[in-house]
Design a protein around this nucleic acid. Sequence first.
DNA 1: TGAAATGTTGGGGCG
DNA 2: ACGCCCCAACATTTC
Length: 461
Amino acid sequence: MKTVVWWIRRDLRLNDNTALKSAVNTGLPIIPLFIIDPALKKSPGHTRQNFLYEGLHCLQKDLSSRGNALVIKEGSPLNILAELVANYEVQMIFAEEDFTPYAIKRDDRIAQSLPLTLTSGLTFIHPGQVRKSDGNPYTIFTPFSKAWKSLPITASEPWKAPINILTNPAIKSNPFSTYTKSSLFNAGEYEASQRLFQFTQDKIYNYKEERDRMDLDGTSTLSPYLRFGMLSINQALFAIQKIQNRNLSNSQEQGVATWFNELIWREFYQNILYYFPNVKKEAFNPKYRNIEWLNSAEHLNAWKNGQTGFPIVDAAMRQLSSTGWMHNRSRMIVASFLSKDLLINWQEGERWFMDNLIDGDLAANNGGWQWTAGVGTDAAPYFRIFNPYLQSEKFDPQGEYIRKWIPELSILPNEYIHHPDLMPSAEQLYYGCKIGKDYPAPIINRKETRQRTLDAYKKAS
DNA sequence: TGAAATGTTGGGGCG
DNA sequence: ACGCCCCAACATTTC
């Protein structure tokens, strides 16, 4: 029996799936396949791996309700696919194109000997399509986003997977259910579509104002779903287009435009990784490849464990450890603190984020870290140093975020919540929070570190 | 998608 | 009424 393979990688959905659609269009029976690749298994942290496995479980359920089966195999993709091709009459392998250096290399090798066809879907516009007039890729966000927006491409009505997907009955799958559920994110495309619907009904209209507030629930919380393709970028952009057709107030429009812009940032960093795969290993900007980092192991541990003595930093780091997710504003604050205040190589932070984030994505995470560390695609940003106290007062005004994640500070009044080390000793006694004992004293003096960092960056450039 | 330092302006108090 | 000072508020420059 002639058959085709739908090779699932980071597109764990049935609807609006370009690879599945291509497979369905052949009219041949399909083998829906996910390969657990040992080469990738060692890198993801537990949170992300659990989310992936729960997503596979969901996909398996979604498929079996259509009378089909998801085949899950473990091993080298090349070997597994070659074996399938040898044992079944596989006419074609369809997969959604991925742009990490590992994925590109893997797919190139497989395509040399097997009938692999890659489809577009991870980014809305393929990296090759967004270039300057001289043919070079964009390296600055604003011109990139202008070019991106000017392309005459609009999101299309998401493709609905057929009620019955014809699968190849000759190959059986084992049920897959070994995972720990995330406390915050249910996996699966149903959950993703629900969240997208809720967000675009309501929160998106206040997104511009509330997305930065760490004490509010103002962000989309869609990143894990976009990361694993439980939601496609086309589905997200189509949802935006639909609400843009309504009569929106000025401020509502701004909320929508701000989220739209965030999605273009995602495209931008996928592009950067595609054209400059070396960013995985080094700073995008050659001037900042030789910064003399201090790399204090003690400071790095304090940062990881949320014990720096800076409440907003510690709250954020504990949120990450507890939930596998961190608010976007918090990510910038802790990243600035690690690279600019502690003068620790941003790559240490990048790795810790990848080990812990449920939505950890090489392109976005790397881009974000390089941006904050000031070594990336921005023009002259080395002096962009966040002041954790100001950030805290601005974006967690009542200290609710801090109180939520740092129980030992939860009793403090607003007056001291951002800056507990300024608390007089009588108050420390009164609130049962002795600085240096119940909660750490600040591990660095910001007045000194600011200058230290400016010097180190200046020297490197 | 930063913050601090420095510069400018303009209104009110006051001799 | 006038000029001077003070200072808050805002704008610009600098790192």
